[in-house]
Amino acid sequence: MQDILEIAGIQFKSRLWVGTGKYKDFDETARAIEASGADVVTVAVRRVNIINRKEPNLLDYIDPKKYKILPNTAGCYTVEDALRYSRLAREAGVSDMVKLEVIGDDKTLFPDVCGLLKATEILAKEGFKVFPYSTDDPIIARRLVDAGAVAVMPLGAPIGSGLGIRNPYNLKIILETIKIPIIVDAGVGTASDAAIAMELGADAALINTAIAGAKDPIMMAMAMKNAVIAGRLAFLSGRIPKKLYASASSPIEGMF
């Protein structure tokens, strides 16, 4: 069955997208990504280590020819910083996509949606393919589409919290009302959370901490891969409605 995710003319082979943060080392990062089957990975933009040039480079472990690189603006609390990091990321030369984060608060890491909207508009005009990391607010999602986002990335729960999909009803409204791809980003704690996001109809799920922070990240990457596939197939196949009372699976006829 052909079930290709296409965003802004780019075809994505996997519906599981993974982050590259919080791993023990780059070798573990590379092995987890491989096990996850993801073909898109997020990265952050930071200063080069000038002092220690022996320090390995992430891109030596994640080949940009093999993986689509989605740079983020994690850590940016203002529109200006988010623009600056986005532009630097594009100049680095591996991608014109940006997972746009304008963070509002360091305890929740919830997005500052006013800033996010402003930055999305500016970057979209500059030709970026903007993937804004948003709250699960259907109205903000709509505004981000109007501002030129190529996809919207509503959170399931706070970044790194592992709380799962806390507001499936809001996500459902977003999925029903937004006509561009929706990638659930942040909050997934374990495989069933990823499956729930996909069963709701999300186009993809972006997961980092749940994999990197697991006792066995490689095995969890495989679990997430299978959960995303299972959730997607369940969504496409059309689940049965929930009913209060039983309906027998075995026939009455022929009983004695």
């Binding site: 990062t29 990265v43 952050a44 933009v45 200063r47 080069v48 990321a89 972006l206």
Partner: peptide, 10 residues
């Protein structure tokens, strides 16, 4: 002068 590159991130 700022010189930046990509590091692990989510």
């Amino acid at each position: 002068v700022e010189i930046v590159n990509f590091v692990g991130g989510g």
